[in-house]
Design a protein around this nucleic acid. Structure first.
Lengths: 337, 337
DNA sequence: CTGAAAGCGCTAACAC
DNA sequence: GTGTTAGCGCTTTCAG
């Protein structure tokens, strides 16, 4: 007599059907071709009847595979779509996703928290980790823990500088180029990029923007990054020959810009056109780029699955940069006559 | 000699220090008070040196506890904040969160997918499940699987009708009441609620709205729910004595309403005031309620921790409804003279 | 204070 | 086709 409430296991099915535990394991484990049809049917039925669910924990302990991956990626906003893509794709393949987002704890420093998260994932024997690097020079120590244990690592959104890993992100240069061309097509010639100098994605977008701008007949292109950029913006926007087409590397920056422009009495888009990136719906009707975050997540999951099937850590990393889609809305228009 | 690359285990530490595996287990497991300080120090040091990480899988198999909870809750938008609250709180207590969001699969029906998700969680032996019911008459069969196995279940946002469980959500009636009072305070007397008849939260908000409206001197309150509500809105807004203060049960509905009002040439807030709920930033400057989703997640996690510590499923369920905070913005104003 | 032995639920090698 | 045995890495009696 089993303890009341205890989970039903292979043994229960074996006892019930008068067959050995091993046989049950094999049949329910998919190796049913080796057995007599009658036995298979009998086992299957008993399993169903007892409402048997395999114990993944036990299975994993034996096989050393957990079919679980850790996702170290923000939960909010843009990245929630990435996570959704990761989860859906992995779920279809029988994998579970365990959240490895470093929470904002009031007790510990960020570094400690991040290390703790990695410990948690390692202790739970995740088969892989999908990571959006929180900073680009991610602490080497954290990674060694992952690297040494040979856990496949897929980076998202920003490439890691210290380790060469598989990567899925946005084609940032192409975004910049497309922004410049969109403005140029509308007739703008005095262009401005507002970015940052400490974020990879921002730099690449600026690069693409300037390159494409350089190919436009008669275009000039300014470029403000880093601390003090808002003062620069403020001063340049006072001038008669101020830029009329501005590309901000993110929607958040575009929003701040538009707020300021309105304060200065500059109308958008009549006087100045503004483009953002991310499609994060912060400002209504902002012309922006949809970076297809769900697809990025899906791509990362697929890359992961490919990686573990090949089982070759040695193979050179795959880098995928997905195109973003321009969404023209109400903040871009031809320049004033 | 251990196999190259294999994880270091208790045995390795035992061999290294010349002490028994059991002793190592106990010391590293926190029962260090029972041992000689010298031994404890020796073991600790060896563990550090070998970079030992306990294998949670093995531990769990032995103890029957996984310190993992499943979160069956949407990943996007409002609920991503709830998830964040759940994750942060549980993480502080050593729990991991595994994603149990039913993904939109193109192959299976929703019901099948939901069942599969539950199987996945059960098979991984989650210690509990935090759920935002996707429909209110959630299929009984799914739950029996959870219920029978005695897995603590915490509901979020909407109470389950079939099972009495712990619950954390918003004080929906209070939201409705506060919306009515806000409009009344601004001077509105002809009020309107736009809701739904098949969603618990919407109904409760409507109830609170009407009750509070009833207590306002000279106020009248209409109430549109269910199919055909937009036709009703359209027709009532033509009239001379149309409502001047409207409360929509969600931001999404408020957004749709404002779009329509603008099409009809009705100005917001000069002619009509509109309030939403959720603070989902869909429309800029919408007067709405912040439902404190992070706090709701945190509350659910705390309730879960309390529940497993008591270990009494028999105890009556705890129901928590957190207040929402009115955020007055640009879509509410005094009525036209 | 410390250790030997049993066993969590399952899979995999190797018999018959 | 089916059963026996060993053991994944750990915790937990129970015995010194």
């Amino acid at each position: 007599m089993r303890k009341q409430g205890a989970a039903v296991g292979l043994r229960d099915i074996a006892e019930m059907t008068g067959v050995s535990l091993t046989t049950v394991s094999k049949i329910l484990g998919g190796k049913d071709k080796l057995f007599a049809d009658a036995t298979v049917a009998r086992i299957r039925q008993a399993a169903q009847q007892l409402n048997y669910r395999p114990n993944a924990i036990a299975r994993n302990l034996r096989c050393g595979r957990t079919r679980t991956v850790g996702a170290m990626i923000p939960l909010i906003g843009y990245f929630s779509h990435v996570l959704s893509g990761i989860h859906s794709t992995l779920f279809e393949h029988g994998y579970a996703v365990i959240i490895g987002t470093p929470p904002k704890l009031n007790t510990a420093s960020d570094d400690q928290t991040e290390a703790q998260v990695i410990h948690q994932l390692i202790e739970r024997n995740v088969d892989g980790i999908i990571l959006r690097p929180s900073s680009e020079q991610f602490e080497r120590a954290y990674f060694d823990e992952i690297w040494q244990r040979n856990v496949p690592l897929i980076a998202i959104d920003r490439e890691l500088s210290l380790f060469k890993t598989d990567f899925v992100g946005t084609d940032d240069e192409a975004i910049g180029a497309a922004a410049a061309r969109h403005l140029a097509d509308l007739g703008h010639r005095r262009l401005l990029f507002i970015g940052r100098d400490d974020v990879q994605t921002a730099e690449l977008r600026g690069l693409g923007f300037r390159c494409a701008a350089g190919e436009v007949e008669g275009a000039s292109c300014a470029h403000f990054v880093g601390a003090g950029q808002w003062q620069e913006v403020a001063s340049v926007m006072q001038r008669d020959d101020r830029p009329t087409g501005i590309f901000c590397y993110s929607d958040a920056v575009a929003e701040r810009l538009i707020t300021r422009l309105q304060e200065w009495g500059v109308r958008v888009p009549e006087d100045v056109s503004v483009i953002g990136a991310g499609n994060t719906k912060m400002v209504r009707e902002l012309t922006t780029f949809d970076q297809q975050p769900y697809e990025i997540g899906k791509g990362a999951a697929q890359l992961y699955l490919k990686r573990i099937n090949e089982d070759t850590r040695a193979a050179s990393p795959t880098i995928i940069r997905l195109p973003a889609i321009l969404i023209p809305r109400a903040t871009t228009a031809p320049p004033p006559a």
